[in-house]
Design a protein around this nucleic acid. Structure first.
Length: 115
DNA sequence: AACCTGACGACCA
DNA sequence: GTGGTCGCCAGGT
């Protein structure tokens, strides 16, 4: 689902969770993205928190600032506190996605094609 | 088993 | 606008 986010658009952790049928499992989306080997083909940097901020954390060991630079590179203004304008850049799938409710299971290996 | 810690989010002061 | 609490769930100690 993250792979579908176009350049210059944003989605939230909770939104991704909801789109894959795992309503309320935002933390697991962060859990999955956290484990991505970087650099990654997946546009992980286009996922931000619902407050409209990059989740800054020392535990990310710099990936948060990389995220900021990548977003700026795509034309999205991000201030030094990670704040950005979420609503104007918010992405929504073209076609509605209907899935059965799913539990918050660990994600499978991410070798999905970037379609 | 009982904590603690997260790339979260809704709510409230 | 900010900050704190709480519910959430996976993992680690």
């Amino acid at each position: 689902m993250v792979a579908r986010i176009p350049v210059g658009r944003l989605a939230t952790y909770g939104q991704i969770a909801e789109l894959i049928g795992a309503w309320g499992c935002a933390r697991q989306v962060g859990w999955a993205l956290r484990r991505l080997p970087l650099p990654s083909e997946l546009p992980w940097h286009r996922v931000v928190n619902a407050a409209g901020r990059i989740s800054l954390s020392p535990g990310r060991e710099g990936s948060d600032w990389i995220q900021r630079q990548m977003l700026i590179g795509e034309g999205i203004a991000v201030d030094a506190q990670g704040r950005l304008a979420l609503a104007p850049h918010r992405w929504r799938p073209d076609a509605p996605v209907h899935l059965e409710p799913a539990p918050c299971e660990p994600v499978p290996p991410l070798d999905l094609p970037l379609a």
